[in-house]
Design a protein around this nucleic acid. Sequence first.
DNA 1: TAGATTGTTAATCGATTAACAATC
DNA 2: TAGATTGTTAATCGATTAACAATC
Lengths: 214, 214
Amino acid sequence: MTRVSNKVIGRLGLYRRLLADLAAEGMEFVFSHELAKRATVTAAQVRRDIMSIGYVGNPAKGYDVAALSASIAQLLDAPEGQNVVLVGIGNLGRALLAYFSDRRMALRIIAAFDTDESKVNRVLHGFRCYHMRMLDKIAREHSVDVGIIAVPAHQAQAAAERMMETGIRGILNFAPTRLVVPHGVYVEDINMSVSLERVAFMARASATKAELRL
Amino acid sequence: MTRVSNKVIGRLGLYRRLLADLAAEGMEFVFSHELAKRATVTAAQVRRDIMSIGYVGNPAKGYDVAALSASIAQLLDAPEGQNVVLVGIGNLGRALLAYFSDRRMALRIIAAFDTDESKVNRVLHGFRCYHMRMLDKIAREHSVDVGIIAVPAHQAQAAAERMMETGIRGILNFAPTRLVVPHGVYVEDINMSVSLERVAFMARASATKAELRL
DNA sequence: TAGATTGTTAATCGATTAACAATC
DNA sequence: TAGATTGTTAATCGATTAACAATC
C-alpha cells in the first residue's frame, strides 16, 4: 500500500471525476496542466499526486485518461466494494440520502437509521430506514465499515459509539461536535457552520483588501 | 486587520463554539490544553491561534472565557452583521435552510432562490423563496456578500456568476464542480462525495494497518 | 530534430515542534 | 516560594517550488 496522505486521496478522487468527464467528452489523453486547471491546483501538484500512485505518463501525449482513471480506482476503491450506513434521518440525513442516491460510486449506502420511531420502517430515496436498535445486526451482516453521522450534536458521540461497536472504522461527521474515538478510527468532520463563517470572513477580508490565502 | 489564514479562522470559529459551551457550564477561565482536547488540536496550536489575534492569557488562570470569546467575535463577525443568500432549493438546499435556521450566528440568510417556478414564492423553515430573477434586486438591497450554492453541478457556474454580479465576494459551494472566479472572490468547496471517498479509503487503510495521517 | 512535457533532484518556504524564559 | 501555564525563540519537519535531465 502506497503511503499517501488523506489530502492526496481527496485530490485523486477529484481527478477521477474530472477524468470521467474527459472520457465522456471522448478525450483519450490529458496533460497535467489541463487537469490542474479544472481541479484548481498546480500542474506540479497533479504530477506529484499521480507519481505517488506509481502511474507514469507520456511526455508527448500526457496521461492516458482511461488507464489513469483505472489506476486511481485501483487505489481508492475496495475490490469488493464498501458498504455505508447513515445515522440520522432528519432534514440533513434525508438530503444526504438523495445526494448519494444518484452517484455511481464504489460506495453503497445500505440503510439509514434513527431513534425516532416515526421516521423508521419506510423507504426514502430508495434506502430502507430502520430503528437504531437494528444497526448492529444490519451493519455486521453487510460488513459495513463506513458511517455517516447526521444527528444533532448532543447525539453524535452516542451514534459514533454504536457505529464503532459494529466494527465501523471510518466516520463522516456532519454534527458540529468533535467525536472522541480510539486510535485506528478515522473521522472527517464537515462543519458547515464553521465553513460558512470562514467564507464570510474571507469575503469581508477580500472587501477590505486584507491578505487572502487561497 | 491581522494576517490570519483561513485555517486559523476555521479553528477560531471552533474555539468560539467551545467557549460558548464552557460559558453555559459556568466556567470563567480555561487553559489551552482543555480547549485543545475538545477541539482535537494541540495546546500549542490553541495558544498560537489565540496569540495571532492579540489576545493574552493569564499563566495562573488560563484564558478568560468571556473575554476571549468577545475577542474572537471582534475578529470574525462584521459589526453590522453579514447577509447570506442560498441558491438551490432542492433536497440539499432545504436541509441547509433548516440547518442554519436554528443557529445563532452573526450571519443571516435573508432568502433562498431557485429557477424552478414550483419551488418559489413560499416560506421554508422561515426563509422566503424567490425566483432567481429576483436575486440581483434582493441581494443588492440587503448588501449580501456571501452566497451558498446548492444546485446541481452543471448549474453551479451560472449561479456563481449571477451571485458575483450582485457583488458577492464569498461562496460556499456544495456542487461537485470547481468554480471559475476572478481574483478577490473566495470559494470554499464542500464536496461530500470526495469526503466520503476519503473516509472510506482511510477506513480501509486503517483496517490494513497502512499509514494513517490524521 | 525541436519542443513541450514528464520524472527527478535540489532549494525554498511555511508550519509545527521543542526548548526556555516570563508570569501569576 | 513552587508549580503549572503562558509567550517567545530556535530547531525540526514536511510540503511546495524551482531547476534540470530524460522522454516521446
